[in-house]
Design a protein around this nucleic acid. Structure first.
Lengths: 238, 238
DNA sequence: CGCTCGCTGTGACAGACATCACCCGTTGAT
DNA sequence: ATCAACGGGTGATGTCTGTCACAGCGAGCG
């Protein structure tokens, strides 16, 4: 039986169906109201640039639904995808909090429901509502932990195949278990996968062929089936 | 002329001489008092393990003075140094906030003045004092930004020499400018440098020799002089 | 003094991967 | 229908760097 709080939340955060897992959505009414008053919600089409590396922070973006890729680019033009952000993530918070330029660029991978909060509104929100601040700190902790895992993978992996295996294994929890293994929808090109593990498109192609040959995975259309999760886990030493 | 606030702070945070740059040291008296009531300050000798990767979070460690290395280890026994924490950093905060196991291990590199705060006390502090929460969020943002830079280096660098050059350039701001270039005190072995950039000891030795040959650096005892900062910058494409 | 131990310096060698080059199939536009 | 653009697949080649092996060297110590 929903409490008045829950009803209130439904009213305010209609686009978020994941209360509890999203920062800000399960706060006290006053805080949610203040948030609603300052946020600009809209649906961004696929390929929208939310912010660009080096730009002064205008505010934070709450990714309610959809996916966005966070990238950084070398002076030579090579791109590294740091992370694919999922629904519920707060983007640009660290830059906004510190008042420093964004460290990465963010681009939507699909049409996404996003709430934008201007930097000064965001800061005011954090000062006025301790709850909001706590949620932000937790969101930042998540992001920090995830970044640390990324560093671990990039720094400790001996070979590129280890990195690729680790990447695929990281997708497994979000997949669907079938009789022929875990089904994953890969909506990334080999080029993008390469940019996620810091290698080249050709190497990704070759390694995936290799995995297929070893019956670790199989590919049918845009579906990738993980056949040998345990064997894949075993080849990863990290 | 110091305000009463400042005097108060001096009394309470006697070991921190960097008010303003350290989280928690420049809060209102009530918050500082609450913090002082729950913290355990002491000097940890060199080589102390503050916490170990995988361990349940006992609390947070405020590194007041000294340095500590944050490491993670692969199942094969390879070690990666994620970061050398300097005075003013809050260690273990993300694990404590999320109630998840520490993602890294922390070990002091020199005798260090450290304040420990138990996890429940820390959480209580954050709930009771919005100011403390805001400082924590900022500290986490710093850590996140620094982690992103690390990912950038590890993922975008083409060669190991680029990573090494980038590492050395990162040390320059903390060095002393002399007539023969920037003087850096390197208190790390080649092995440790290797662990910072995900390579081997031999490669570090070879690359440093190479840098010396190219007159980019020169080494005198435990001093490393950066002779060609600009040329070094130029060889880094990231 | 001779010893060990940890750190540094090198050589030889092999394997992994980036690079370049080209081919193929699909898709979508003209 | 034709063509360009894009994603994927594959071979040849060179280079970087990890690995193994060993030597020198200073510090600390019995």
């Amino acid at each position: 039986m929903p409490t008045p709080y829950n009803l209130k939340m439904e009213d305010h955060c209609t686009t978020c169906s994941h209360r509890g897992s999203r920062p800000f959505c399960d706060m006290a009414p006053a805080a949610v109201e203040a948030l609603d008053a300052s946020k600009y919600s809209s649906v961004y089409p696929k390929g929208s640039l939310l912010f660009v590396e080096g730009e002064q922070p205008r505010g934070v973006f709450m990714l309610c639904s959809g996916r966005a890729k966070l990238t950084t680019t070398s002076t030579e033009g090579r791109t590294l995808i740091l992370k694919i952000a999922q629904g519920g993530e707060l983007l640009g918070a660290s830059a906004a909090l510190l008042g420093r330029p964004y460290e990465v660029s963010a681009e939507t991978l699909e049409p996404s429901q996003i709430s934008f909060i201007r930097r000064d509104d965001f800061m005011r929100l954090l000062s006025s509502f301790p709850e909001a601040c706590l949620h932000t700190a937790q969101a930042l902790s998540e992001k920090y932990a995830s970044a640390q895992r990324e560093i671990r993978t990039l720094g400790l992996a001996q070979t590129t195949s280890e990195k690729l295996a680790k990447l695929i294994l990281g997708w497994v929890p979000g997949g669907e278990t079938t009789s022929e293994g875990t089904r994953l929808q890969i909506l990334l090109t080999h080029e993008e996968i390469a940019q996620m593990i810091g290698t080249t498109r050709e190497t990704v192609t070759r390694l995936l062929s290799d995995f297929k040959r070893k019956k670790l995975i199989s590919v049918k259309g845009s579906n990738l089936f993980v056949l040998g999760q345990q064997r894949m886990q075993d080849m990863v030493s990290i």
